[in-house]
Computed example of a mutant assay.
Amino acid sequence: MTNQPYDRTKPHNQLPLLPPADSIVLDPEILLKWGYASRALAELNRNILRLPNPTMLINTISLQEAKSSSAIENIFTTDDELYKATADIHREETASPAIKEVLRYREALWTGHKIVSQSGEIDLDTIIQIYQKIKNSTQKIRPPQSLVVIKRGNSEHRPGEVIYTPPRGVGILEEKLKNLIEYLNDNQAYPTDPLLKMTIAHYQFEAIHPFTDGNGRTGRVLNLLYLVNQRLLSHPVLYLSKYIIDHKDEYYYNLQAVTQMGAWKKWILYMLTAVEQTAMNTNRMIDEILEQMSTTLDYGKKQLNWYNKEVNEAIFTQPYIKPRIIGEILSISSRTTLTKYMAQLAQLGIVSPKEDWKQVYYLNNDLIRILEG
C-alpha cells in the first residue's frame, strides 16, 4: 500500500495490483469462514443436481437475482410487471425501461454463461460483452478522458459529494484489468482458492470501475460466472444480490475500507458470509420448490387424467404462464379445449387466472410464495 494519504476526489491510480498479501488470505478467521462458505456452496451444488431439469428452475432464481441486483443500483420493478414480461415475449418489447434493465441483466447472465462454458475462462472480451448486454450499449472500457466519479445519492447525507474517483489515464485501466484477468485465470501463478479469489476480485473490479455505468451489475454477473467456471457451481444460481441489498450499507462501507485503509479482512469475511447465507437460503428455496412440485404433481394427476410431469414442470418454470405453453406441451390446437383445461387447473387451485387488458395470465401462487418468501 502507498504511504500517500488517500484523496477520494483524485483518480485512484495507485490501486494496488493483485494479489493482496498472503498474510491476509491466510488469516485464521478468514479460513474458518471460508470453510463454512465452501461447505454451503458444495451442498447447493449437490442440490441443483436433484432438479429434473436444472435450467427449468434456474430461470426463476436468476430472475430474482436480476431483480435484486438492479435494485442495488436503485432500479426498481414490481414482481407483477416482471413476471408478466417474462411470460409474454411481446410484453417484453413494450415493457418499462426498468423492466427491460432487469431482463437484460438475466440475458447478460446467460450470455456470459454460454461464452465462459465454451471458452473455459473469463477474458476482457467476455467482460465487455456482459456489460454491453446489461446496458444495451456498444460502449467498451471508458476512455482516459472520461471524468467518472462516484457520488452520494440524493437521499443520503451530503448528497452529491464525491466518495470515490476510480483510476483513469492512458493505459491505466488496461493494466489493472490485465492483472485482474490473469489473477482469475492463472491458478499456477496465483494459487489462491477460487472462492477466496472471487471475493478479492469482486472488490478489485468495482475499484477499477472500468465502465461509465453498470459496473456493479457486471461485477455481480462475473461473480457467478467465475464460480461456475471454477466448478464450484454447475449453474449460476447463487442468489447473492439479495444478501447484498439486505446489507447494502455494510457492502459499501467495506468496499471503501479496502480502498482507504487496505482493510481486506472485513471485506473478505463479508463476502464469504454472503456466499454462505445465500447458498443456505437458495438451498431452502430449491427444497421448497421441489417439495411443492412433487405435491402438485401428485394432486394434479389424481384429479385430471391429462395432467403429467411435463405440464407440472412448465407451471413451475416461471411464476406466470400463458395457456399456449400448456397447449404446446399437450399438442392441443383447439382453443376451446385449452380454455377448459386451464379452467380445470384454476378450479383445483393449481393456478389462478389474472386478466390484464386482453391478456390472461395464470399465476402459480405456490411458486410466487416460495420465491418471495
Rank of each mutant, 00 (worst) to 15 (best):
L44C: 09
L44P: 01
L44R: 11
L44E: 08
N45G: 11
N45A: 14
N45L: 06
R46G: 13
R46I: 07
R46D: 11
R46P: 05
R46Y: 09
R46H: 12
R46T: 10
N47D: 11
N47F: 05
N47L: 15
I48L: 15
L49G: 14
L49S: 15
R50Y: 08
R50H: 10
R50S: 11
L51T: 10
L51Q: 14
L51N: 09
L51I: 13
P52C: 13
P52E: 12
P52A: 12
N53P: 04
N53A: 14
P54G: 11
T55A: 13
T55P: 04
T55H: 10
T55M: 12
T55W: 08
M56Y: 15
M56N: 15
M56S: 15
M56A: 15
L57I: 15
L57E: 05
L57T: 10
L57Q: 09
L57N: 09
L57S: 09
I58T: 14
I58R: 09
I58F: 14
N59V: 09
T60V: 15
T60K: 09
T60M: 10
I61H: 06
I61W: 07
I61Y: 07
I61E: 05
S62E: 04
S62Q: 11
S62V: 08
S62F: 01
L63H: 05
L63A: 11
L63D: 01
Q64H: 11
Q64S: 12
Q64Y: 05
Q64P: 03
Q64E: 14
Q64A: 12
Q64W: 02
E65P: 04
E65H: 06
E65W: 06
A66Y: 03
A66T: 04
A66K: 03
A66D: 02
A66P: 04
K67T: 08
K67L: 07
K67C: 04
S68G: 00
S68P: 00
S68R: 10
S68E: 09
S69Y: 00
S69N: 05
S69Q: 03
S70G: 01
S70L: 02
S70H: 02
S70F: 01
S70Y: 00
A71R: 07
A71G: 01
A71N: 02
A71E: 12
I72K: 08
I72C: 06
I72A: 04
I72R: 07
I72Y: 07
I72G: 02
E73M: 03
E73T: 02
N74R: 07
N74G: 00
N74F: 03
I75C: 00
I75Q: 01
I75H: 01
I75Y: 00
I75P: 01
I75E: 01
F76Y: 03
F76D: 00
F76W: 00
F76H: 02
